[in-house]
Design a protein around this nucleic acid. Structure first.
Lengths: 134, 134
DNA sequence: GTATTTGCAAATGATTTGCAGTGCT
DNA sequence: AGCACTGCAAATCATTTGCAAATAC
């Protein structure tokens, strides 16, 4: 079981609830707490929102997942993966990844601010191809 | 009065509360609703949080100010200005601007995703020079 | 003069907490 | 066995709404 090990490698116990969270997140790409709650109840009718919040926090604190904050929407969560940027549609709300190498940006940051840069979060908003047609 | 006109050019009535919001935002660079509330009460002891929320929303809807969402913090607000990126310190929470031209990133977005890119939000997190010393 | 805005209080919505029972390793 | 995790209910915190009085233009 791949997801089980993913949790254990991050020193979190592999409960079925957590495995389901990772499965859903992996499948959706990005998911909000509410959608996660709606979907996960199909497997765990009795899971509580509190458990989701707690688990999302513990997974974030070990960098297994990452929070994507978007203006005008509730936060979404994704499994930690290769650096990338996000595009979000202002019309329909769709969120997707695009390839982007943040190396240059991090260099620039260090040069300009002396910060020890660790993470980069990029959200580009605009209108998706579908909504442009309407 | 510069701020008065700024409001009027965006078709918002120049109430003293709004002018004070812009003054504080201009002075702070980036400010959260709570800090804004704390500071603005020195001038308007009776201002309500509801008024702040309403004004922040109306100013956002005319693009006079912009929301900066940061993982692990409450949103901050800034006056709309030249495109730039943000660096935030994971230790002390300090937020500052750094110069960054998003043109390349927007081109890339269009090429990769066919989105009509309108806005770019960049938040780089790391450790600020002060906190590195500790 | 009129439409907008303010400030209050109350409603709503989101997230966190405490705790007893359960389950992973 | 032992500690971490779950689920519930309640507490807390954040944001929005409705409305009457005040104010910008």
């Amino acid at each position: 079981m791949k997801h089980q090990q993913l949790l254990q490698h991050h020193q979190l116990k592999a409960t079925p609830q957590r495995i389901a969270i990772i499965e859903l997140m992996h499948h959706a790409g990005h998911i909000s707490i509410d959608d996660l709650y709606r979907d996960i109840r199909e497997k765990f009718a009795s899971i509580s929102l509190a458990t989701l919040y707690k688990n999302v926090h513990s997974m974030m604190s070990v960098n297994l997942i990452r929070e994507v904050k978007i203006s005008g929407q509730k936060a979404k969560y994704e499994i930690e993966k290769m650096p990338h940027a996000h595009v979000v549609c202002k019309a329909c709300g769709e969120l997707k990844d695009i390839a982007f190498d943040p190396a240059v940006l991090m260099q620039e940051t260090i040069r300009e601010s002396d910060y020890a840069a660790e993470e980069v979060s990029i959200v580009i908003s605009g209108i998706c191809p579908q909504c442009q047609k309407i």
